[in-house]
């Protein structure tokens, strides 16, 4: 498009302002973790690494990280299984209610977390009489993770078509062999992208977790939240927050290298 130089400059500076809006708060979190003082004040009076050492040794943080990883992997595994099944059903078969599936699958992530949270908590504790535990957290997380796996898998299955599978079966491979040697390898990177996104969603989730976590189950977001207003813990919270900011580069790097299906990794 032929834009005047001035228009280009205006747009470029608006882009810059937008990026500053996005990145200044994140940088503040990272710089703040090196703040030597126990209480927050800006700019930091001195820099030090002592809170990083404290955070690494903090048992609460380690335990929370463990719970988060356990919940994330389990929820991702379930979401991968259910999401892929659904994607196969929708892309390869015609059946009554097929159009509803994409709506049903997106519902848990589009309804407010507090609604899903109290609905699941009510169902677990009041209707079914199950006490909350890590398992209930996993069930809650898996429910809203299905959609990202489903979207990624469905996009790939539609693009793949069925000719490769038909060729494989014409050459004498049965359904299982075809799935193992043809379909799955073609689907793998889409499943990886979906799984990565599912893990990310689960790892970051706080609202549904609040309502479904059993006593003593503290995922990392819950730990941060519980310690956010404790002045004593502020420096350690700062370090955990900074780590999470820095680690957010990893999934972006991975998904940029892997997924060509869409720039957003199938969130939309």
């Amino acid at each position: 498009m032929t834009l005047s130089t001035r228009a280009r400059y205006v747009l470029a500076s608006l882009m810059g302002v937008g990026l500053a809006f996005i990145y200044i708060p994140l940088s503040v979190v990272v710089i703040n973790s090196f703040n030597s003082s126990r209480t927050f004040s800006w700019p930091p009076t001195g820099l030090s690494l002592k809170w990083w050492e404290k955070a690494v040794q903090n048992t609460g943080v380690r335990q929370a990280l463990g719970w988060s990883i356990a919940a994330g992997f389990s929820a991702t595994a379930i979401a991968l299984l259910l999401g892929t099944c659904l994607a196969f059903a929708v892309s390869r078969y015609n059946f009554f209610g097929r159009e509803i599936i994409s709506l049903l699958v997106v519902l848990p992530i589009s309804l407010p977390g507090v609604v899903t949270g109290i609905a699941l908590s009510n169902a677990f504790t009041k209707q079914l009489g199950i006490s909350t535990s890590l398992l209930t957290v996993i069930i809650g997380h898996a429910t809203f993770c299905i959609v990202v796996v489903y979207n990624n898998a469905l996009a790939r299955l539609r693009r793949m078509g069925t000719s490769l599978q038909e060729a494989s079966m014409d050459l004498g491979a049965n359904g299982f062999t075809t799935f193992r040697l043809i379909t799955l390898p073609n689907l793998a990177s889409a499943l990886f992208a979906g799984g990565l996104l599912a893990f990310g969603l689960s790892f970051d989730e706080i609202v549904v977790t609040t309502f479904t976590a059993g006593p003593g189950i503290q995922t990392l977001p819950i730990w941060i939240y519980d310690n956010l207003f404790r002045p004593n813990q502020a420096p350690v919270v700062n370090v955990v927050a900074a780590t999470l900011v820095l680690f957010s580069i990893i999934p972006i790097y991975l998904s940029q290298r892997l997924s060509q299906d869409s720039t957003s990794g199938g969130r939309f």
């Binding site: 708060p25 990310g200 941060i224 927050a241 900011v245 957010s248 972006i252």
Partner: peptide, 20 residues
Amino acid sequence: LVLTPLWASYLVKIYAWRSM
């Protein structure tokens, strides 16, 4: 650059605005 903050924790981003 625009996508990266989607992966940074929700809580951390709001916490950042507390400091801001």
